Amino acid sequence: MDIIPAIDILDGRCVRLYQGDYKQSQIYSENPVEIAHRWADLGATCLHLVDLDGAKQGTPVNLTTIESIVKSVAIPVQVGGGLRSSPSIAQLLALGASTAIVGTIAVEAPTLVQELCQEFPGKIAVGIDARNGKVATRGWLKTSEILATDLAQQMVGFGATSIIYTDIHRDGTLVGPNCKALRELASHVEIPVIASGGVSSLTDLLGLLSLEALGVKGVIIGKALYTGNLNLAEALRAVGPGRWQDIPPNLESSALG
């Protein structure tokens, strides 16, 4: 299973939100590029970047930082946040991002997602962020009446490469992932599902590993890495495909602060 460190960017800093609340943000670094290097050096095989300013404003904001990260690490970087048009996605992919993650437009303009999947084949992932099974949009500030499973099935039909599922109630809480919701979602689609939200321990990761056969192929980890609750090198050893055997001993600790 892919272990994917998250780097959420707000006002140029690396932060974590609590349950998606912009008013409850914790700054972990003034330099997201250094954080990206750290996770890559520890063996991460992919990074997950979110432009939180972009998600809120509806257009990418932190492109300079994103470009610096993409060009300074030798692993794929998937990026989301404010990607609601073809030009914004084209710009992001031109910077070197491996995958563009769309979210809000999947609800508000689903046919646009279909067009984007045709225009950028194999490059469009859909982020489905849910509260109580219903999809939230616009940086989690608005909750729709659309069920996550229904939206996921529609996006599969359009050609999305993967579904990134975030349980907002668990994001940044360290209370464990919503395995029940992930199991249900994965059973409804035939493309990889990437879990996000609540992971706090190796026990959580092993629980997710049991869903791999159903299609849960990766997990995005944020706060647990930044607080030291979870060590990236240990996580890769336990369930990941990472290059853990090459990690220098002095980089074993993945806690920040």
Rank of each mutant, 00 (worst) to 15 (best):
A148G: 12
E34V: 08
A152R: 05
V216F: 10
K217A: 06
G215I: 00
V193M: 06
A235V: 03
G20P: 09
Q24G: 07
Q154I: 05
L92E: 05
I4N: 05
K23A: 11
Q91D: 14
S88N: 13
I221P: 04
R237F: 07
Q153L: 14
V113N: 01
L214F: 05
M155A: 02
A195W: 08
P192I: 00
W39N: 01
L256R: 04
T64N: 14
T45D: 12
D41Q: 13
G12C: 01
A55K: 09
H37A: 07
V70Y: 05
P32G: 00
A90L: 10
G133K: 04
K142T: 07
R138E: 05
L211C: 01
A6K: 00
E30W: 08
P177T: 04
P249S: 10
A55M: 11
G133W: 03
I35S: 00
V77W: 09
V70I: 12
A233V: 15
I168T: 11
L83P: 07
L151Y: 09
G157H: 06
M1T: 10
L147V: 11
V107H: 13
R170D: 01
L47A: 09
L92V: 09
V70P: 00
Y165I: 01
L185T: 11
L208I: 04
H188V: 14
